[in-house]
Design a binder for these strands. Structure first.
Lengths: 250, 250
DNA sequence: ATGCGTCGTTGATGTACATCAATGAATAGG
DNA sequence: CCTATTCATTGATGTACATCAACGACGCAT
């Protein structure tokens, strides 16, 4: 049986709840303005705080398994999460990378329709789905906020379909780097030497390419002077304008 | 200046509102249970009826142009609508086909992020976006219904990303035919000789393929006995089980 | 330190699908 | 009714990317 001692979390083992130390982690939440909770007043946030479990998820550890009962929803508070679907022979399609503030767990059916894992060590807020749904009824402005977030995601999904169906490898990589840069900027993080925490393989599975093609395309953009590959997974967008043209198919 | 005489609608001209003849078309709406309006009671529907404009859209006529102010939202009531995005050199990615009951026009920004046209002669209910938003505030259950619809769409979008990024031509076509069949079934229409109203080119732009590859793949599936191509755009799913295996990547 | 697995890169080769092209069938417009 | 497009199909050829393969760099565990 699983223990709740953090030290026992093995590599690739499911994440387990961390003992709460703070009375209300939400009060001090520095990214609340990015999350679902942004819809709530100070005093109302306490109702979320009352049902939250803060969790640490080690690199590579699963958070959600496709097909499992959808009992929780999550807010990412630090790190990076990959969301994906699999074909039965193991082919994988990443459907998104999530960063602090992003919401996860929306489900129609009673089971999750996708899987999610930590790309790097991350923290998430976990809420019982039923209790959040009750709060949505109580606070329509939170439901409105969720609709707005879903609507944003839908627009991003359509953009990604355009990428997957109609862009070539160079356009895909340029689009990807710019997307990461814009999202970092929204969060007040470095937009230019942009942090790319995921592997070439992860990127390939997000863009509908193989590891090798991703690597070659990075090399090609580097050779052209459009980007610079820095240590620790940082990429400098040396010619952002050029990248934007490439991404748009110009 | 545009006239409101229906007879003057030319091919590929924007659709124009049709004069209302019925006092409340919503009262007689046979597909209301599929739409956003399903959330409302008989008497409440009248508030939607009060702001609706019923429109006929001829085959090929535009309904929404990407980049235009997002002033309306729509419910499809008959026919079929294609939704797509373009790259600047004209490459097109269909992001969805809409059928009776489907909702269209959700937008975060003040402009549409995609274009939409009728595939075949269709009818839609048009609502002023601002007024619908006001009704969403008044009727939280309608907002909940919209969130549920958006959530469904999001799941479908993720499924489509898996298709675009990781399936081959045969798997894409099999998935597409099954999707059309399931959606027809939901609407109480023929699920087996399934009606495929869109062109090979439209299908290609939906699946990230060319016209020729779509045509060849249909031929291949026909040769294998998995499907039968009938007149008037009907396709018989002669070996549905086999198609399902193919679609899943088995 | 040493060995081992993962990761990134690059090269050689293969292939699924795109592109180019031709033709017949279906459809719309005068 | 007849002609002009558009649409679907099939063949020949090209190519972007996948696959197979090798190797060095790095991180991790013993």
């Amino acid at each position: 049986m699983a223990t709740f001692d953090v030290k026992n979390i093995g590599h690739l083992r499911p994440a387990v709840p961390r003992e709460e130390v703070m009375p209300s982690p939400c009060a001090a939440c520095s990214i609340r303005h990015l999350t679902l909770c942004a819809a709530l007043q100070e005093n109302e946030v306490q109702e979320m705080a009352a049902i939250v479990t803060t969790m640490e998820v080690g690199a590579g550890e699963p958070l959600i398994d496709e097909g499992q009962p959808a009992v929780h929803v999550f807010n990412v508070t630090s790190g990076a999460i990959r969301v994906y679907k699999l074909l039965i022979d193991g082919r994988r399609q990443m459907t998104g990378f999530l960063f602090p503030g992003d919401f996860l767990g929306l489900a129609n059916e009673d089971t999750y329709a996708y899987s999610a894992e930590a790309v790097i060590a991350s923290t998430v807020c976990r809420f019982p789905r039923r209790k959040v749904e009750a709060l949505l009824v109580k606070y329509p402005k939170m439901e409105r906020r969720l609709l707005s977030m879903a609507s944003h995601e839908l627009a991003a999904a359509q953009e990604q379909m355009l990428l997957l169906g109609r862009k070539n490898a160079r356009e895909k990589i340029a689009s990807f780097l710019l997307m990461l840069s814009r999202r970092a900027e929204q969060r007040g993080l470095a937009a230019d030497p942009v942090f790319v925490p995921m592997s070439r393989n992860d990127i390939g599975d997000y863009l509908g390419l193989t590891t090798e093609t991703v690597s070659r395309t990075f090399s090609e953009l580097k050779a052209k002077g459009a980007i610079e590959l820095l240590p620790l997974g940082k990429v400098r967008l040396a010619q952002r304008e050029r990248l934007e043209e490439i991404a748009e198919g110009a």
